[in-house]
């Protein structure tokens, strides 16, 4: 996939970083670059962080500092289906914790973990701003609204069934 000899990062990202270097305050694009890397690879690996630091001419320590500071960035890969249970206030008040408990017991994993088959990973997310439809769960880009814990196994089964086809 990678045609660039020196970097494992895709050409698209290397080009983007070079474009940033031609702008004013290139180091200010670090967060945007990490967004792009995570968008393509799903998470930020150590080698990619190193390469970003090298390309952008910013100390790796700073890059790592930024990557670990912000909740949005992941340093570990996640499952094919990323389940995010919204833990915002409205969802909390409407029972998001029992939905989360159901996901945990159905999948047999804890928050921040991935199932052994790599199919599902589970995380709690900050408010996604759909408070009026609380509790809300997102699985990849799909939003499930007004979720109750009894629905959890059905949701998972549907995904598994679709996956088998």
């Amino acid at each position: 996939m990678c045609t660039n000899k020196k970097y494992t990062l895709s050409d698209e990202i290397v080009d983007y970083i070079n474009e940033c270097l031609s702008k004013e305050h290139p180091e200010s694009y670090l967060i945007a670059i990490l967004h792009k890397v995570q968008g393509i690879y799903g998470f930020l690996s150590e080698i990619h962080l190193d390469e970003v630091a090298h390309l952008l001419q910013v100390p790796t320590a700073n890059v790592y500092g930024v990557a670990t500071f912000y909740h949005y960035f992941r340093l570990k890969p996640r499952g094919q289906f990323a389940i995010s249970v919204c833990m915002g206030t409205a969802c909390f008040v409407k029972g998001a914790d029992s939905v989360l408990t159901s996901f945990k017991s159905e999948l047999g994993i804890d928050m921040g973990e991935t199932t052994s088959d790599g199919l599902f990973s589970l995380e709690g997310t900050r408010c996604i701003g759909v408070c009026a439809l609380a509790p809300v769960v997102t699985i990849n880009d799909r939003v499930y609204s007004n979720v109750v814990s009894q629905q959890v196994s059905q949701i998972l089964n549907e995904i598994k069934a679709a996956e088998r086809v």
Partner: peptide
């Protein structure tokens, strides 16, 4: 446009400025 990356403290103005500068949002 500059994207945030999920840090509540970045709503504080000096933290937000640091974040736009590409730093940790402190």
């Amino acid at each position: 446009i500059r994207l945030g990356a999920g840090a509540f403290v970045c709503g504080e103005e000096t933290a937000l400025i640091h974040s736009i500068e590409g730093l940790r949002g402190q």
